[in-house]
Amino acid sequence: MADCKRRAFFKGAGAALGITATVGGGAALYGMKRAWDPLPSVVAAGVTTVETGAMGAGEIGRVEFRGQPVLIMKKTSEMKPNDNRDVIVNGERFTVIILICTHLGCIPAWTGEIFKCACHGGEFDSSGVNTFGPPPRPMVIPPFKIDGTKLVLGKEGPEYAKLKQANS
């Protein structure tokens, strides 16, 4: 009888130990995961405003947005319009892309007609759509909001939501 009780006690103690260790271990893992999350300052930083009013056709502007290079190009009449990708500010068409190859993250160069990635030979058209080589997707359009002739990167406006839907 005493033996039975003792066994039940050890079983209970074992279960309690197991549960505590599992919860504690899980909490520790969560803490370690959190330690590697981007810091709040990193997440909060990064609204970049660009003035497009003075840009001429074919002109290229480059800004840094959340540590990434963003290219803003006012399209010329020779460049094929693309309603699913062009950002229309004040009636003018712009290509606005994070200039990072969707293959493995190199920075493609604008040749005057296309974007060419030196790393593995990927190519993109003037709207940033992949046309040749390993890149699997068009270059990413950063979140933006339109404010007159200003483009606010890092805020999501209705125009961005529309493009995002058309691209997904």
């Binding site: 990193v42 959340r66 540590g67």
Partner: peptide, 13 residues
């Protein structure tokens, strides 16, 4: 990717 880097890009973290 962002978690491994601790940022949107490779940097100090």
């Amino acid at each position: 990717v962002v978690w491994i880097r601790g940022n949107f890009v490779v940097e100090d973290a």
